[in-house]
């Protein structure tokens, strides 16, 4: 099925919106009425047809617009792409994984032809066609990870596995929920998770690390993470905080349903074969409160989750300014009906 790519923006006039189909397939992250951190990792196996987990990497109606937004962010701040020199094997592993998956899952949009090490990649939506030698960086116009990273929705971090931990030694990060690649590059697992409240005490991070160190080739895993963002802005980076931080002050009882977005990250992790590194993929989905409320069980669930949210998490996720207003806005949808465990819209 060919996708219809929308023309829309994620900055300034914010013309981003979700179609009915995109709302229905939104990866709603709350199966229960209360939220707490857990190692909610599951195998990244093929999901239901049409779901965001149907394929290895999800391409949707926002693909072209997101790639354009990524290009703008990288032009304004080239430091959003970083790769330490020892990560070159991992870069090529990443090329093989992503091009192979896209060509297999979306053959009408992407093709990959291999003649030995001479590969021809065609990306029809973005109008790109290149022939290069796999493993020979001089045959591509950019570093391999940079080249293909720009042609994918979401952010990617390549983690080097050494000294019994993982180091964030390469990344292309333009749609992050307030964290900085320039700050985190070269850091170890414990260092970059240091700021997460309550998780360290719960031992969640140590357990997750142990699990990931044993991540196997051919058995990727996934989890969902979430936060809330004012306006459908992909680039909520600390570097550009002056451009988006004050948006929280514009939220009022009238516009909250349009302005406040649930931001869900579909995080997937893959072991890379030749480098033994791990790809951490963070695919961002945005939906405003009004669109969530189209499905009553989602509105009820979100109300209960937010109403019982731990104050540390409200602060950590940057929701302090508009949180009470959001709970009030959602309350009108909640009749107290008991909801079954699960995340389906209906």
């Amino acid at each position: 099925m060919a996708l219809n790519f929308k023309k829309e923006t994620f900055r300034e006039d914010y013309t981003y919106s979700n179609s009915d189909a995109a709302i229905k397939r939104f990866p709603f992250p709350f199966p229960e009425d209360q939220y707490m951190y857990s190692v909610n990792i599951e195998p990244h196996t093929k999901g239901k047809q049409g779901s965001v987990c149907e394929f290895t990497f999800d391409i949707d109606e926002h693909y072209v617009a997101e790639c354009i937004d990524k290009k703008i962010t990288l032009e304004q701040d080239p430091g959003r792409y970083q790769a330490l020199p020892h990560m070159m094997d991992a870069q090529w592993d990443f090329v093989e994984l992503t091009m192979g998956a896209l060509a297999q899952d979306y053959p009408e949009h992407f093709t990959l032809q291999k003649q030995g090490l001479i590969w021809t990649w065609e990306n029809k939506p973005l109008g790109i066609k290149d022939t290069f030698t796999f493993g020979d960086t001089s045959t591509l116009a950019a570093e391999p990870f940079d080249y293909i990273g720009r042609q994918l929705q979401g952010d990617f971090v390549l983690l080097d596995h050494r000294d019994e931990t993982l180091y964030a030694d390469a990344g292309i990060v333009t749609s992050q929920a307030d964290w900085s690649l320039a700050f985190n590059v070269g850091m170890s697992w414990r260092e970059w998770h240091g700021p997460v409240p309550r998780a360290t005490e719960l031992g969640v991070m140590d357990r997750a690390l142990k699990y990931l160190l044993n991540l196997q080739i051919g058995s990727p895993v996934r989890r969902l993470n979430w936060t809330m963002t004012v306006n459908p802005r992909l680039d909520t980076s600390p570097e550009n905080y002056p451009h988006w931080g004050s948006d929280r002050n514009t939220v009022n009882a009238e516009n909250i349903g349009d302005l406040v977005h649930l931001r869900v990250e579909l995080q997937t992790l893959f072991r890379l074969p030749r480098s033994n590194a791990i790809v951490f993929s963070i695919r961002c989905y945005l939906i405003n409160l009004k669109d969530i409320a189209i499905y009553p069980c989602w509105a009820k669930r979100l109300h209960r989750v937010q109403k019982t949210m731990h104050p540390d998490l409200i602060e950590y996720k940057g929701m302090t300014k508009f949180h009470p207003m959001m709970v009030d806005w959602l309350a009108k949808f909640d009749d107290g009906e008991t909801l079954a465990i699960g995340t389906q819209p209906e």
Binding site: R162, N214, Q216, S219, N276
Partner: peptide, 13 residues
Amino acid sequence: ITYPMNLFSLAKK
């Protein structure tokens, strides 16, 4: 056989 697993990797640095 299982997929390859590396517990004895080279230190690339």
